[in-house]
């Protein structure tokens, strides 16, 4: 995997950021300034994902191939995560006034992620016809979700937030289904060198879903605060996903 020097250098840099990030996290949880540094470092993880996926997407066929599309969509999800998190972090007033604008970016992040997973499902032996059904399902619930959110937004902003959160949970369910399908199918077939990268993608999904669960549980008990354990789990998920493109085999 690290026959490629560029991948090695970038991965060392990336792991360095993660170590610093974990150090800041465990330093002082009540210090807001440290939390901001922690959050900024977490976003650097996303940036790595965008950068590296962008670097190799053309080599793997760009938008003309399934693998290229998966990488491109993964990069898009990193960009959306970066923008939405920065809005949340740098412009909290904007978020407080228009929370829906930020949540919708997160929603699109999940959607672009589910489509990326859909392209990768092809490598687990799922038939193209069932993939088509999955695609129609995701597209239809995205369209219905967005229309419902916008229609309700002009009548009842709170209701539109509830709808948006509901469709985001639905995309979580789809991600979980993708994760399970990939894992079950991969256990049945002999793997090639691409397996490591796809396995990392699966692990990234799993950790992100755990993050969502922790976030939801802590939120329901009013225990949520900026930089708490759920942020750590999310950061770990971005660490795994960000490193995923670097695990693509180096083909000379």
């Amino acid at each position: 995997m690290f026959k490629n020097k560029k991948a090695l250098i970038l991965s060392v840099y990336f792991i360095g950021v993660v170590i610093f990030w974990l150090y800041v996290y465990f330093l002082d949880r009540k210090n807001l300034n440290l939390n901001k540094i922690f959050y900024f470092l977490m976003e650097l993880l996303s940036f790595f994902g965008v950068f590296y996926a962008g670097l190799i997407v053309k080599k793997w066929g760009g938008l003309n191939s399934r693998l290229g599309k998966a990488l491109f969509l993964l990069a898009i999800s990193f960009v959306l995560n970066f923008i939405s998190s920065m809005v949340l972090f740098v412009f909290p007033e904007f978020y407080n006034s228009y929370p829906i604008a930020t949540i919708i970016l997160f929603f699109f992040m999940y959607i672009s992620w589910t489509f990326s997973g859909l392209e990768l499902l092809y490598f687990s032996g799922v038939k193209p016809t069932s993939l088509k059904r999955w695609r129609y399902l995701i597209i239809s619930f995205t369209v219905v979700g967005i229309i419902a959110t916008f229609i309700s937004f002009f009548q009842d902003a709170e209701m539109s937030m509830i709808i948006l959160q509901f469709v985001t949970i639905l995309s979580d369910v789809i991600l979980l289904a993708e994760f399970l399908t990939l894992m079950v199918n991969f256990s049945r077939i002999k793997q090639g060198t691409l397996f490591k990268a796809i396995l990392l993608f699966c692990l990234g999904i799993l950790v992100q879903l755990i993050g969502d669960l922790v976030f939801a549980i802590r939120g329901s008990f009013n225990l949520l605060y900026f930089g708490d354990i759920s942020y750590l789990v999310y950061g770990l998920s971005w660490f795994i996903l960000g490193l995923c493109p670097a695990f693509f085999p180096h083909e000379k």
Binding site: G61, L67, E251
Partner: peptide, 13 residues
């Protein structure tokens, strides 16, 4: 294979 992994890698392989 070009449709799946891209023509560059498919041809190289």
């Amino acid at each position: 294979q070009a449709e799946i992994i891209g023509s560059k890698i498919a041809i190289k392989k």
